[in-house]
Amino acid sequence: MTWWTLRAVIGGGLLTGLLAYLTATLPDARPWLGPLLAAAAVVSLVYVGVMPAVRYRVHRWETTGEAVYALSGWVVREWRVAPISRIQTVDTKRGPLQQLLRLATVTVTTGSAHGPVRITGLDQDVAARVARDLTEITRRTPGDAT
């Protein structure tokens, strides 16, 4: 949750900051930049205030012997299911922010370009364990992954 908050703060801050800078330096553009700046500020605030909490409440994941399942999103919710037998790769990824917070993202890809199941913001150790387990199960499960 801290991770989402940080990301939201950085993203919203950058946008608002940029607009504020432009508004300050380009007096000619103020009539239309002004409202835009205000809108951006409001949106960013709401985003920072609401998004992380909602996401934290919504996000769920689970792996069983047969499938991987994840629920994500805040405005648009998305459930994704991929059966173990169709898994092709398991990735663990940590961005700079995530390293700071000891978090990791596990991405499970299948044969489809549209079907990766992404589990974001896991504790690093849990992520490593999940990735290891999945790799292990996948290896035991035979079959063409398409």
Binding site: V76, R77, E78, V81, P83, R86, S112, H114, V117, T146
Partner: peptide, 15 residues
């Protein structure tokens, strides 16, 4: 048999 996963999407309005 070619289906290798499912996604279910719900936006605010859809919910």
């Amino acid at each position: 048999s070619a289906v290798i996963g499912w996604k279910f999407r719900q936006s605010l309005l859809q919910r």
